[in-house]
Design a protein around this nucleic acid. Sequence first.
RNA 1: GGCCCAUUCGUCUAGUGGUUAGGACGUAAGAUUUUCAUUCUUAAAACAGGAGUUCGAUUCUCCUAUGGGCUGCCA
Length: 507
Amino acid sequence: MSEKPVRVRFAPSPTGPLHIGGVRTALYNYLFAKKNNGTFIIRIEDTDQTRFVPGAQDYIMDALKWCGINATEGPGIGGEYGPYVQSERNDMYRPYAEQLVANDKAYYAFDTPEELEEMREKAKLMNMPNWQYNSVTRTSMKNSISLPADEVKRRIENGDPYVIRIKMPRNVDVRFEDMIRGWVTVNTNNLDDKVLFKSDGIPTYHLANIVDDHTMEISHVIRGEEWLPSAPMHIMLYEAFGWEPPRFAHLPLLLRPDGNGKLSKRDGDRLGFPVFPCDWVTAEGELYSGYREKGYLPQAFINMLAFLGWNPGTTQEIFSMEELEAIFTLERVSKGGAKFDPDKTKWFQHQHLKAVPDAELADLLIAQYDAKVDKSRLTQIVHLMKERATFPQDILIEGAYLMERPTSIDAQSIEKKWKDDSNDLLTGWLAQLEAIVDFTAPTIESVFKAYIAEKNVGIGAVMFLFRLLVTGQGAGPSMFEISEFLGKQEVIDRLNWGLATVAEMKK
RNA sequence: GGCCCAUUCGUCUAGUGGUUAGGACGUAAGAUUUUCAUUCUUAAAACAGGAGUUCGAUUCUCCUAUGGGCUGCCA
């Protein structure tokens, strides 16, 4: 294999927000670079001015940063191979295209888009739906191969618009070894004379991509499977320039969870889960929701994404970014497309949330969720609630009663559970609580057990109502721990309030 | 239509020329827990179909089917 240092790039187009398929491509590039002591580069491919979306580039950079996918070269980051935005490199492409024309690897074509459209329509009517501009048809089109040299010269001097097309040879088998799929062979008869340089003076993706990959000394091109059909053409371009091509790896696509098809922009909010890393608001004010804003931890999001099309070959499923960096290999990327699974994503999130230390989670709640509680108190709340939460904000929402007294008690629950002896049992329990000096969970628990034994009733006869009156909720963490956390006076006050409230309801 | 790629439980996947085809999510049942969640145990659940090669194919080859991608002066 090549001795060259590993340099990989993620090259998105700023045509909108980056969806999770793109994030995964970036992630695999990043992990591959890390694993091989290489360099991960971000390059913005904005050669299509008509599809440019303001803010998209910032979104991409912001989203990758949130994910922890950090580039060492890229726009706003720097590096010796810049600039890293193609529109800023525009001057360098034309000479390469001209070089190809001079070497008879490409040619000028004057056909207008309308004329081409007409050709395709005509061909379709003649039962030839796959008309293409190629070695057969180009002789009857308007280009520097079919037209006399002086007319070509005249047209160019005249300022006639023209494109530069690759001169795809006839009947050549193009072979390359994809790192994921193995050998792929395509005959050039199935390839057309792709436009390399547009009449607006800007190169197409194909030219800019090859020139940039070569000049940036990219060693491995890791990209989505949608590029597989054009890979042979790219190989031909490298050959035309006399450059050594990089290694290729085409990643399987991310499919939608329901039915079939590639995951697309609108699937997310329609199916109830995000397809974008972060929120994105369109110019029209339409919101596409993101994982970040839903409360997903970046490490959980990354872990989930890494496992969509890759696995370590062991049964371990929970990984930190650092662990992934150490073991990722392209050889273990699967070939088939993967359906995205929202349920498993939640599971990853839950696992990662549990792994965050209590104090750290408390900091996060204060910083990102505006929690108005003292840090040490909040840390205790996190400790009590973390196991049963999926998202950080669940701790605040489901544990609200730990911060504020309940304002009402569910009448239906009382209806169901309140028995004739309940008032006596709870009043008796209140007296027991008042007598406890060491108000800690173990002590409260032993007092409680002695109390129900003395009264000769089951745990449920007192516990559920105790919980309901103190927290307003029918479910939650251990009442003994909650009691310790709230403190003796608070528990007594709440219980008194609860008894009064029920008495009021019973009238 | 043409070209290319893919195909193991519902989903993500492991795996091998001879395995009880393994794990995870989800589902179901049970245990633990005052409750809910967690956790634990158990269960149901897959090699797309057909030929061929072979003593033997889920594994190798071919065909078919299905799915997907591409087929733009988009990327």
